[in-house]
Computed example of a mutant assay.
Amino acid sequence: MPDSPTVGRRERKKAATRQAIADAALELFLEHGFERVSVRDIAEKADVSTTTLFAHFPSKEALVFDREEEVEAELTAAVRERPEGQSVVEALRVHALKAWVSITSDPRLHQHNALVDQTPALREYAERMWMRHAGALGAVIAEELGRERDDLACSALARFVLEIPILANGRHDPRAVVETVFDLLIHGWGSQQDSEVDRT
């Protein structure tokens, strides 16, 4: 059995190769358009074989969403591994503030989103990915609350939470977006109406 340093080096090398492929793909897609770039073009730019490329990414579309599995794992871990006494919604709020605010502030996100919006195949892939994330998160929330896997309230909460990065995109204060949405989830629309009354 290999020792842990060897395993660590192997995993780091694998992660570096995966990142190099994803970076090369995005650069080519942004420069030439998704449809005009071939998998062979990406492999050549990343200096890997097409076999290696497909060992890391199952499809051309997946190259654009290289953190897909990581994002879902982080979401479910935020719920499963939350501190004792912390509610599911609060755990998701903490995760959103930590993981999503910095991402929505990244200027490269605008280019990425524009590429997806302009490419039908990527829009379809993104919608399927969003649904998978929503299903996985809803199931974990239901499990943690002792409810049926397809519990409607848990599924709705998962979908609301996953809309936050979309709502925050392009806004000048993404942190305020996260706080506003979670305030709405925790306190309901009545709290928003009360705020309007307070301002009049």
Rank of each mutant, 00 (worst) to 15 (best):
L109E: 08
A142C: 06
G138W: 00
H56D: 03
S102F: 12
P83A: 02
E72I: 15
A142K: 00
I166V: 12
A24T: 05
L97K: 12
E27F: 09
R147Y: 10
H56V: 01
E68V: 13
L28K: 02
T119Y: 01
M131K: 11
G170R: 04
L28N: 03
K45P: 05
F65R: 11
R80D: 09
A156I: 14
L92P: 01
L109F: 09
L92F: 09
I103M: 13
K45N: 13
S102K: 15
E61P: 08
L53C: 10
L30T: 02
P120H: 09
L122P: 02
T119N: 01
A158H: 00
F160G: 12
S155V: 10
S59E: 14
H112V: 01
D151V: 08
L63I: 08
E84P: 07
I164W: 11
V37F: 00
F29L: 00
A24L: 06
E61M: 07
V37C: 00
N169V: 12
H112F: 13
S105K: 15
F160W: 15
V140M: 06
D41A: 10
L157M: 11
T76N: 02
S49L: 11
D106Y: 08
R149L: 11
A24F: 05
E144S: 06
A46V: 02
E74K: 12
E144L: 04
V94D: 11
E31H: 04
A126P: 04
V37T: 05
A136P: 03
A24C: 06
A43P: 10
M129W: 09
V48L: 05
R123S: 14
L157I: 04
Y125K: 00
A46S: 08
R93D: 01
Q118L: 11
R40H: 08
P58M: 13
V94Y: 06
P58E: 11
D150P: 02
V48H: 08
A43I: 13
E74S: 11
R147G: 04
E69T: 09
F57R: 07
I166E: 13
L53G: 02
F160N: 12
K45R: 15
R132S: 04
L162N: 12
E69Y: 07
Q111H: 14
T51G: 13
P107R: 06
V94S: 11
L75E: 10
D106R: 04
R40W: 08
R132P: 00
E72L: 14
L92K: 03
T104I: 07
E124F: 06
E90N: 14
V101N: 02
A55V: 10
L63Y: 09
A77N: 05
